[in-house]
Write a protein that binds this DNA or RNA. Structure first.
Lengths: 186, 186
DNA sequence: TAGCACATGTAACTCGTTACATGATTTG
DNA sequence: CAAATCATGTAACGAGTTACATGTGCTA
């Protein structure tokens, strides 16, 4: 069975055929909002998917300088993707470097600690703005499809809403923490 | 410079000396709420920290069957920890298997997809309950220290608040999605 | 007396990142 | 004409997981 990256690739190919390069771009940080990687992982993974008959490719005289491989998901690939999606995943191993820092915040210089948290807050706020802009675009492009859970656009929209919700929570928490860092007892 | 795991260990040792075993237990899933690992990573990492003079150990006739190594953070270790904490971290590479599934939710059987999301919601609700219980315990144990950013207890409390905030956001989002999955258009 | 908690380590493997390698076409 | 984009791969390295390895003391 494919790795999570394999299923991410299948999820993109279930929408439309793409080249390895297209897939790499879609999964490049920070474009891939919930799973990122680089092309050096994509090409071998595509080869594995093809070996398992979940995708196949046809060589196309590409717009690029060299012949490109246009990958398509197979019927078996679609079935496998749908099966995997419905499986309840193991809870992810928590691994958040930022919280490791927060856990030791008391050991740092107070002003420097405050600046670090503020920088994070700024970053989260920028991401929230970016997500909101993307949400507006989506609403214009798809309108009714976003209400239909059977539409591919709906699934993408749901992940976007998750991002917006997450950033809002992160910002609220940063504000709470910054407030506490300011009002230290005498 | 140590890895993130190394700093997690330093953060624990900055509070009190511990054995490798104690550290492993603290970082064992799901006890470590924001960074987990197993003992097989802890022991080599402790050796590296010691080589860099950030921790040192003394052999103690332990309560266990064999002699145990009691690790203590050094002054240099404390300095290095405080320095690292104030550094603004790179934004983490997003990697959320669950959202990879959501992105392809439209390819799954609707009833099975709904069940998957509901299972996740149940899991998040259980974690929220667990965090809230821990919060109550903390309030009883530390009371005033939780208002003082210079206290170690405050930093631990801040990470707990983050967990609570995160789970609340996750649950709200699951409820939104479940509602959408139910009201599909004809 | 069987299993769990204590206690510490090594080895093999998987996944992900960074660097190496090549090279044509388009855009500024 | 320099840089970015298109386009596809391999190799070396680092971090994390799982399995291997050993052994005592306490409790049900």
């Amino acid at each position: 069975m494919p790795s999570t990256l394999g299923y991410a690739l299948l999820g993109l190919l279930a929408r439309e055929p793409r080249t390895g390069y297209d897939l790499s771009v879609a999964l490049r940080a920070p474009i891939g909002h919930f799973w990122t990687t680089t092309h050096s992982q994509v090409y071998p993974e595509l080869a594995r998917l093809e070996q398992e008959l979940l995708v196949r490719h046809r060589v196309v005289p590409g717009r690029g300088p060299r012949d490109t491989k246009r990958f398509t998901i197979t019927a078996a690939g679609r079935r496998e993707l749908g099966r995997w999606v419905a499986e309840v995943p193991e809870p992810p191993a928590p691994r958040d470097e930022f919280l490791v820092k927060v856990y030791s915040l008391w050991t740092a210089d107070p002003a420097a600690a405050r600046a670090m948290v503020l920088a994070l807050r700024t970053h989260d706020a920028a991401r929230l703005d970016f997500y909101r802009a993307e949400e507006r675009e989506m609403r214009e492009r798809w309108a009714e499809e976003l209400d239909d859970p059977a539409a591919a656009a709906f699934s993408a929209y749901a992940t976007l809403r998750r991002g917006i919700s997450f950033e809002q929570h992160a910002i609220d928490w940063c504000d709470w923490l910054l407030d506490r860092l300011d009002h230290r007892p005498e």
